[in-house]
Design a protein around this nucleic acid. Structure first.
Lengths: 219, 219
DNA sequence: CAGGAATTTTAATCCGGATTAAACTAATCC
DNA sequence: GGATTAGTTTAATCCGGATTAAAATTCCTG
């Protein structure tokens, strides 16, 4: 089942094709929905026959699982890079947004939207859910950090995190690979979503519009 | 096929049950994904048998279509109310966000995530896509208005709209009806997403961090 | 070039959930 | 109460895409 270790290439021929398969599958799932894409669709995109896919994955469920695993991995990568490079909470959050967007619209994309987690096989589902949870928690951690260091306004980090991650996760629904849009995305998403995090600048007088100060209410 | 017009109730027994069906279906689709929910699942939620659903919809495709139609309708309702009540672009946008969230977490919810538009039958797909397009366009219109009246910072309205709508559309993925979370959602989403729209307050000195002013680049 | 492993195809089979038809029960009307 | 319509169930059938097995082809490797 695993490729011969004698193969010279750094990433074996097998792994290369397997990745191509995952990217093609992700593109199909995002474009046509899960139920709307047959293995034949995915295979045809690669110039193959449906049956050939079974050389790379046990079945359709595993294909989806692998797509999600890959998405989780790339998401984690973006987040870790952001944490490593950002000087404070806000910068880390903004960078995460940018890196994640860049990942999705770049050559390593697309990342599959996780629309079908519930129909994964028990163990796969648990694993993906756990990864998602950790990812969310890590992002919320960034927000916390930002609140503490003053670079982010006090807020409900859980909800704020959900809002930002939602905006990101939805991208594959409407973005389908055109270069010009990719550029606008990379420019605008970090800006708009980041702006929502910034603490209000010290104001000379009270703002009658804001009924109360929003404290950090997260669990 | 249509209910007898002689029925006394304002909304006939049939329409009532049909709406219950759509809400149950939306809940199932959101929770378990499209492929993961069988008609039996939906029917059981209503104390019915799968075959009974065919009294209300022609088939599963139409069930999905009706769910999406309903989601589109409620979305439009939120938007129209926001436009009617908001005094300027920003207020309209903020209200739209609030009303939409309230709709999703309220008794009239949940709204089905539109994950399977591509597998709708030709005409249904076209109709839903058209409604979505109009909805997006209308929201972008609000953003334009806000930019013009100065209540919203110049931005790429298409991308900004996508970011906000994405955050909203993703809600059903993680929100599953608990009251406390609903309250946090209603409080926090309009705030965070709205904050991203606000123009920077007039600053005494230039901000070295921003390489250029962002003009309205939308098509 | 021979031989074996890697990869793909052809040609079935399989199967679960969608769908249908007919019968059955519940409500409503006169 | 009997008739008619509304709503539901039972018990099939149906069907398309997933899956499998075996054969064919391609790719290395010595």
């Amino acid at each position: 089942m695993s490729p011969s270790p004698a193969t010279p290439a750094r990433e074996s021929r097998f792994e290369l094709k397997r990745h191509r398969l995952l990217r093609a599958a992700a593109a199909c799932f995002n474009r046509k929905g899960y139920s709307g894409t047959s293995l034949k669709d995915v295979a045809n995109h690669l110039g193959l026959t449906d049956a050939a896919l079974y050389y790379y994955v046990r079945n359709k469920e595993e294909l989806v699982y692998q797509c999600y695993l890959r998405a989780a991995e790339l998401g984690r990568e973006a987040l870790e890079r952001a944490v490593a490079e950002g000087a404070n909470g806000f910068e880390q959050a903004e960078r995460y947004i940018r890196y994640h967007v860049e990942m999705m619209v770049g050559e390593r994309g697309p990342l599959a939207i996780m629309s079908e987690i519930p129909s994964l096989e028990e163990n796969h589902r648990k694993e993906i859910l756990e990864l998602s949870r950790r990812h969310s928690a890590a992002f919320e951690g960034i927000l916390h950090r930002g609140i503490e260091d003053g670079s982010i306004a006090p807020c409900d980090v859980r909800m704020t995190g959900n809002a930002i991650m939602g905006a990101l996760n939805w991208i594959p629904k409407w973005f389908h690979g055109d270069e010009a849009t990719a550029a606008r995305l990379i420019e605008e998403f970090p800006r708009v979503l980041g702006a929502g995090l910034r603490p209000a600048p010290a104001e000379p007088a009270g703002d009658a519009d804001r009924p109360s100060l929003h404290r950090d209410r997260s669990a």
